[in-house]
């Protein structure tokens, strides 16, 4: 197994761990963190696959994809965080619905 393959495998493992977390954890914040772990896994896979180049210079296209992906992930995380706050503050005094107890992701 080459180094690149090892890191790519690590990325897949991170992805699986994150997926497990997002489904099984009940707290919304933990779900959100799990999603970010999944994202890191995918980015690691991309960077690892890019480093397989023989010439010593890694492929820049996956790097650009990772940068774009990180920006998207930041945006989505920020939106999710503000929603988590809104859910936990109980916005307009609405009766608490079926929230954190739900099991689905």
């Amino acid at each position: 197994m080459t180094t690149a393959q090892f890191y790519a495998l690590c990325g897949v493992v991170l992805f699986a761990i994150g997926f497990h977390g997002v489904v099984t954890r009940a707290h919304q914040l933990r779900k959100l963190l799990s999603v970010n772990v999944m994202g890191s896994g995918v980015f690691l896979v991309l960077v690892a696959l890019a480093s397989r180049a023989t010439g010593g210079h890694p492929d820049p296209v996956p790097h650009a994809m990772v940068l774009t992906g990180i920006v998207v992930a930041i945006s989505a995380t920020a939106v999710a965080l503000s929603l988590v706050r809104r859910v936990h503050e109980g916005d307009a005094g609405e009766a608490p619905g079926d929230d954190a107890r739900e099991a689905g992701p």
């Binding site: 929603l83 619905g97 992701p105």
Partner: peptide, 8 residues
């Protein structure tokens, strides 16, 4: 809550 679940 619905928006959050949809987003996740």
């Amino acid at each position: 809550f619905a928006a959050l679940r949809y987003l996740l």
